[in-house]
Design a protein around this nucleic acid. Structure first.
Lengths: 217, 217
DNA sequence: TCATATAATGACTCTCAGTCATTATATGAA
DNA sequence: TTCATATAATGACTGAGAGTCATTATATGA
């Protein structure tokens, strides 16, 4: 009989998963506080009470850890977007809702964005596990698919003019990212010199795109 | 008399400037080829035939060098935009031209964009000379001012609806950056999975914004 | 020609990612 | 329970690279 054996190996797996989660939690704190370059593996190891070598039993590299945190963020994002799939038929303003959902996600999860932006750099990507990166991109694509379907639906109801919903979804996404990036890197300068706060800029951008989308009578 | 003295110290200054330029040229090559993280100062020093220590006589840190290259890029960008200031009065499509100018600049100067994106990361910024960063941002702002004036002009001619030209300029800028960022990080994946190439995406985005801007009869 | 100021050098220090031989722990058989 | 074996954790160690600084070379001017 191998129930005892199974129970034990299962307990072990549970412990390993717990340790993995502990490492991730520590990594999240450290990366959020210091950013990728200033974070150290020793720092992460100390914070979860493990030796440095142990970290490398669970993750291949610093980049692996970093992208794992990004993957976490992408998962959160997908959950945020999945809520949008459920809505009364013929609902107006679906695209506005998607826009606001993404902006709201940003406000609640700012720290993940810095990671997403840095992960665009080829040197970081090159050292990260390819399969993990792919998973992140797929999750992003799923989110975009949801937005595309909302554009499509509004279009079919005649609320928006005839457009390529996939292109529009990508452009919406990219525009918001661009604005966030601009404000992220030096909020004080932005607010003072640009003189428009992020909230206003976002709403202005939303207005502009919606005006571009709207079906003209 | 101190003409001789002056001539000599001036020659020295010229030599120093030449050396500075040589270092920058080497740094540009190395950063373009390897990116910030994978570039080494030894690499840059070897490439311009100087010792590592000499580099530090001319630049305070790796970040100083990096941001200096960015400043170079910002200067190029400004020159690109300044051309737009000269145009026949009542010219239609000024904003399109600005959009295309920025996109064209990207096509010719791709490598600078990776630097601009990475420079948004607080850890890089923190170690860079503050005054140099400020100069870059000011140059960026000047470019944006040019775009704002073009929007303003088109608005006053009644080509565009009543908008905040400054906000529109910022949004245009940010949107293009967002799209570039999306395509920059993994062009192969993008083209294959998204199925829309950068050129088309840009033109689609331009179309959407212009539709949002256009004065409705 | 020599004294002094200025610039260049590269060996050195320090930090940190990643490794691996050693140590500890868990498992399963006798 | 006791021992043998497999699995996991450890942290001292290695290698690489940013930045420093005592030493060396060069330029200037008397």
């Amino acid at each position: 009989m191998n129930t005892g054996q199974n129970r034990k190996t299962e307990r072990r797996r549970k412990e390993q998963l717990a340790r993995r989660r502990a490492i991730l939690a520590a990594a999240r704190e450290v990366f959020f506080a210091r950013g990728f370059m200033d974070a150290t593996i020793d720092d992460i190891a100390n914070r979860c009470g493990l030796a440095k070598g142990t970290i490398y039993l669970y993750f291949k590299s610093k980049e692996d850890l970093y992208i794992s945190i990004m993957a976490e963020g992408m998962g959160r994002l997908r959950r945020t977007f999945e809520v949008l799939k459920v809505h009364p038929p013929g609902d107006r303003g679906l695209v506005e809702k998607a826009f606001r959902a993404y902006y709201g996600f940003y406000l609640k999860n700012r720290k993940y964005f810095r990671i997403m932006f840095l992960s665009n750099q080829p040197d970081v990507r090159a050292r990260a596990p390819q399969e993990l990166l792919m998973r992140c991109m797929d999750t992003g694509r799923e989110c975009m698919t949801i937005v595309r379907d909302l554009v499509q639906e509004g279009m079919e109801h005649g609320y928006y003019r005839k457009v390529d919903p996939w292109a529009v979804a990508n452009i919406l996404w990219a525009s918001i990212n661009g604005i966030i990036m601009a404000y992220e890197h030096d909020p004080i300068y932005r607010e003072e010199i640009v003189g428009i706060d992020l909230e206003k800029m976002m709403m202005y951008s939303l207005d502009l795109v919606m005006e571009g989308l709207r079906m003209k009578k």
